[in-house]
Computed example of a mutant assay.
Amino acid sequence: MGDIEAPNSNRPRQNVLLSVLPSKEFASSRKGMLLIAEVALSFVSFVCFAASTAAAFVTVPLLEFLAALFLLFAYSNKFNERFKGFMWPLMDFMRCVSASIIFFIISIISVSKYVDGSSKAAGIFGFIATIVFALDFYLIFNELAAFLKQGGGESNEEPSRQQDEISDSDSD
């Protein structure tokens, strides 16, 4: 009888699902909302490119979707605090810069060269994704610049955490 699960044993499955989803705190933060928007826009752009005649561009939205999904998972589970060996802000900055440039280029090409509706839709969603990725790298750049102005090379803490500590001590 130990092999058969009780009918009301759905509790562990719900906990596993909730552990994969971002926490409510992170999802309502600015970084969380940007990452969720990047994941959603990359996925929609991927689907539109897959259904269009511009299917050659399907790789970029797929890779950006997976990268943004990974960082959403990593930041929401606080892997950036556990694994200090990675330069999380710099990795995120480079991802956003490259994504915004590449999304901008493929969006221009898909809107101007292809005539089908799904290519145009993919281009429009690509332009919106370009704006979101550019906003994200602008905000990361400002955090990194403030971190470096404070002499951030002296410690290994992340800029956003140090920024929070400074704003907390200023309010005292």
Rank of each mutant, 00 (worst) to 15 (best):
L66T: 07
L66V: 12
L66G: 03
A67Y: 00
A67F: 05
L69G: 05
F70E: 01
F70L: 12
L71D: 05
L71C: 08
L71H: 14
L72A: 02
A74V: 10
A74K: 00
Y75L: 10
S76Q: 07
S76A: 15
S76V: 01
S76E: 07
K78H: 14
K78A: 12
F79M: 15
F79I: 13
F79S: 11
N80M: 08
N80F: 07
N80T: 11
E81R: 13
E81P: 02
F83D: 12
F83E: 12
F83Y: 14
F83W: 14
K84R: 14
K84P: 09
F86K: 11
F86L: 15
F86H: 09
M87E: 11
M87A: 12
M87S: 13
W88T: 06
W88D: 10
L90E: 12
M91N: 04
M91T: 13
M91C: 11
M91W: 09
D92T: 09
F93A: 03
F93M: 13
F93I: 06
M94N: 10
R95T: 10
R95W: 08
R95S: 08
C96I: 00
C96S: 15
C96H: 07
S98P: 00
A99W: 03
A99R: 00
S100D: 06
S100G: 05
I101M: 14
I101T: 09
I102W: 06
F103A: 04
F103S: 01
F104H: 04
F104C: 11
F104V: 00
F104I: 05
F104M: 14
I105G: 03
I105W: 06
I106L: 15
I106W: 01
S107D: 04
S107E: 11
I108N: 07
I108G: 09
I108W: 01
I109P: 06
I109R: 02
I109L: 13
I109V: 15
I109T: 13
S110L: 03
V111P: 01
V111I: 15
S112R: 09
S112D: 11
S112W: 05
K113M: 13
K113R: 09
K113N: 08
V115C: 06
D116G: 06
D116L: 09
D116Q: 11
D116V: 08
G117A: 15
S118R: 09
S118H: 11
S118A: 13
S118D: 10
S118V: 06
S119W: 09
S119T: 02
S119L: 07
K120M: 12
K120G: 12
A121C: 09
A121D: 02
A121F: 04
A121N: 07
A121P: 02
A122R: 03
A122F: 06
A122P: 05
A122I: 04
I124F: 05
I124L: 10
F125T: 13
F125K: 08
G126M: 05
G126V: 02
F127Q: 02
I128T: 09
A129I: 03
A129R: 03
T130A: 03
I131T: 07
V132N: 00
F133M: 05
F133S: 14
F133V: 06
F133E: 01
A134C: 14
L135K: 04
